[in-house]
Nucleic acid binder design. Structure first.
Lengths: 154, 154
DNA sequence: CTGCCTGCAAACTCTTTGCACGAAT
DNA sequence: ATTCGTGCAAAGAGTTTGCAGGCAG
């Protein structure tokens, strides 16, 4: 729980520094988010947060998510499926690629250190200063194809 | 016009082979798409297609876009801005990265040959067979920052 | 002729926003 | 006491879909 508390403190501090208020709803949403071990959607986060504090509304979840991503506590992943995914940003690196299994719908985070290099190289040729990079690989599950069952299937 | 006709023939052939009908609307949408030199949205394509055949409806545009992307005549780009972008897939390579200027809103297509290698490497470690990769770099315009005007601004 | 394709408009999904009330500072 | 934050419900934006009529094969 120490890393959770450390992150929660970081969140409290962030809120205070920004002149934002520390509300029960924001804390519930935060705790719900950091209890997750997999990627989750805004709608799922609403459910999780309501289990902690049932006064949490959808609007507040949507209003809190940008705060948490701006403070780098959460990472936002858009795999182009209509809805966005989020997950706790425990580690430090920002150079991460996503591998999306089209069968499991699972998202794997893999380091891709060369991304930053590529971004700067390519952008400097265009007279642009890179802000962020995203690399995503869509793939099919080998085990599912061979045995008909995906071991990661939820 | 020869490359346009070649592409249009490819489209006719694709439709026929799939048992789909060659309609005026589909041809108008196709011609509109291949007249573009920049990325365009579904809504823009509707406008362009209506200039050729004003009977084209929004529904048909949305129903035709998947056909054209599946036949690899169009490439779909999702930069996570709510709406998807498309552009004629003239070249052959599928290993392309997008550099998105946050000031111009322009999208540049840049080759990134190492993407395939990275995709296979990473996916094979996870027991997955890569289907597609996307690499996107978001960047700010240097000229805009320095002079206050973006030379590419439309 | 047959049935795929079409336009229209309504439905859908995800997200954002206006408003009046409620709670943090 | 101020105001910012909240829930609710409606509004938005982009895309999809049901239906009755129309045109390709």
């Amino acid at each position: 729980m120490s890393s959770l508390n450390a992150s929660r403190d970081k969140f409290r501090k962030f809120l205070t520094q920004k002149g934002l208020r520390v509300t029960n709803q924001r804390l519930a949403i935060f705790d719900a988010a950091f209890a997750q071990k997999e990627h989750f959607t805004a709608e799922q986060l609403l459910d999780y947060a309501r289990a902690i504090d049932d006064s949490v509304s959808r609007a507040t979840v949507y209003r809190t998510l940008p705060i948490m991503t701006e403070s780098a506590l959460l990472r936002e992943v858009d795999i182009g499926s209509g809805e966005k995914f989020y997950y706790p940003n425990s580690g430090g690196t920002t150079q991460v690629a996503q591998v999306v299994c089209l069968d499991c719908d699972k998202i794997f985070e893999i380091s891709a250190p060369f991304m930053e290099w590529y971004g700067s190289t390519v952008s400097s040729k265009l007279g642009l200063t890179p802000v962020s990079q995203r690399l995503q690989v869509s793939a099919h599950c080998d085990t599912l194809r061979l045995t008909g069952t995906c071991p990661r299937r939820s």
